[in-house]
Computed example of a mutant assay.
Amino acid sequence: MKTELAPVAARDLQIIEYRGQRVVTTEQMAAGYGATEKMISNNFSRNQTRFVEGKHYFDVEGEELLTLKNSPSFRGAVDKRTPRLRLWTERGAANHAKMLETDQAWGYHEDLVDFYFTQRDAINAPAAQIPISRKELALMVIEAEERAEAAAIENKTLSVTVENLEKHFTKGMTLPAFCKALNGVNTSKITWWAFLRGWLYNEQPDPEKEPRWRVKSYARDKYLTEQDIQIKDVGKEPFTKKKVVLLLKGTHRLYQLYLKGELPMKATWNGEYSHDKAIYTPEVK
């Protein structure tokens, strides 16, 4: 089932800002994620504990909604008959992408982050601004400072890690080889995980035979690529085998998913997220 609204590229979305941050409507998000508004609403209802108003979404109604409907920035984005409007923040949109867990939802969410949420230019529409009390403004400033401080620490840690990963990344590295350096990851299941996530497909569906993994279009030249390997067995005709290898951006995405706890982990994992640089060190020739 698809929503009636045609999806709009994230970079072309009508810019909507509410209380100093960019937001999307349920209609916009559903269309981009390849879902329906009903699916979004049902996921919200079933997982309300994962959503916090003011952090993941805003509910607007009454006089405030009337003011928004009449503002230039909201014109055409909201049905005039809507009695209540729910606006989703970047974090709220991320929750829904995770719950839908489809290639389209993840892909569109990445585009939203890259081309919509991260471009926080102010909208030139003074009439659309909703009056905020001094107390609300002070709280917003404090929250913004706390978020900025936490983000700075997180980014500093992540940048050091990514730098290490890039320094020791070797061309032709496979998924299991990379994940050996990530503490606790079950490398025997990582290929199957990539298959379930839609990064790979099995070219050899016969369950009696070894799988022949290939890269799906969603991940091809984005996270993974393929290399031709010439196989020469004695007494047999030489043949070419496809080897799935990681791209540098793929290592970044894997590490991001690792920190989110979304990779398959060993039963003996000690609960610590860390990486071993020594495993990446190229062999001395």
Rank of each mutant, 00 (worst) to 15 (best):
E37Y: 14
R212W: 08
L139R: 12
A77L: 07
L175N: 10
R212H: 05
Q227Y: 05
D59R: 10
Q129R: 13
M39Y: 13
R22M: 03
W213H: 04
E17G: 11
K236F: 00
K69A: 01
T251K: 04
L182R: 07
E90C: 03
V8K: 06
F74Q: 08
D121C: 04
F117D: 11
A125L: 03
K38A: 14
L247W: 10
Y280E: 07
N164A: 13
I15H: 15
K156E: 09
C179R: 08
D79C: 01
I279D: 13
N164Y: 13
E210N: 09
P72C: 04
H252Y: 15
E37K: 13
P205Y: 01
G271A: 00
K242P: 00
K242F: 06
T102V: 01
F51A: 03
R220C: 02
L165W: 05
R19A: 06
V284W: 13
V160K: 13
R120Q: 15
A152P: 02
N124M: 12
K189G: 07
D121M: 11
S159P: 08
A122H: 14
A148N: 02
V23F: 06
K98I: 01
S41P: 02
V23R: 08
N270Y: 02
H56L: 00
N164R: 08
R46M: 09
V160Y: 13
E283P: 08
K189W: 12
A9K: 14
M265R: 07
M99R: 11
M140F: 12
E272G: 05
M39G: 13
